[in-house]
Design a protein around this nucleic acid. Sequence first.
DNA 1: GGTACCTTGACGCAGCGTAAGGGTAA
DNA 2: ATTACCCTTACGCTGCGTCAAGGTAC
Lengths: 130, 130
Amino acid sequence: MTTFTITDLAKEYQITTRAIRFYEDQGLLAPARSGRNRVYSKRDRVRLELILRSKRLGFSLVEIKELFDLYDSAQRDNAQLRQFLKVLSSKRVRIVEMKKDIEAMLSEIDMFEYQCKRVLEKQDRPKEPN
Amino acid sequence: MTTFTITDLAKEYQITTRAIRFYEDQGLLAPARSGRNRVYSKRDRVRLELILRSKRLGFSLVEIKELFDLYDSAQRDNAQLRQFLKVLSSKRVRIVEMKKDIEAMLSEIDMFEYQCKRVLEKQDRPKEPN
DNA sequence: GGTACCTTGACGCAGCGTAAGGGTAA
DNA sequence: ATTACCCTTACGCTGCGTCAAGGTAC
């Protein structure tokens, strides 16, 4: 079994060990222990990846935990599985909204760049040299 | 001149007046006043829109303020304009990264949905009819 | 004199960053 | 004994939400 230490994961994902411990505090991770030390499995690592991506997309830790819990209980409970599907589709809606924000932002950046560059060009050649 | 009250903007963008005042505290907005009351111009509204979109994309208020300040000084200062262009392109990099996160997330949601639905179908028809 | 706005405080919560102080294994 | 990890505890900052307490305009 491949396992990881907390610093392994911290380095791999460019975060602090503090953050990883905090996710555990909040019930998002539950690594095994070897004495006092935390030992992370591949499954823990996958969870951490999901946490980080979700966070980058603006989801709160509470939200992420709810999804994890729902997913876990959906393995045994059919009603929970249907609920999980519902929540998933609502997340999808939000993500599609974000995609729109991203497109809008990119085109705004394009516009700003275009305008700035025109200003600079004008100043480089004050009188258009025919 | 079209102007807006703080509640106008709060309602339009579905945020609290508290948030709008907070952006002012942080130097991101500087509405005119009519007595003690804040009066927002179209330009203020555009700024607010930019703030909100940037925030939804995970930019910090400090970052947004720096961009605003840079943009303002770029109107007069050529070096600042070049600096502004640099910062813009770094923002673009981050946004493109986010776009990848979004695509990854969407395909993960697709996978989860597909798997869940298969489980449900199996349970609806325990023994494949025919 | 309501009610429907506006104002300025101020306290509280989330999500960590950043030491502080200490144990453990090579 | 130093280096290189690991641990827990705790205080501080950001970005507001949410009262509180009051002023102003119709």
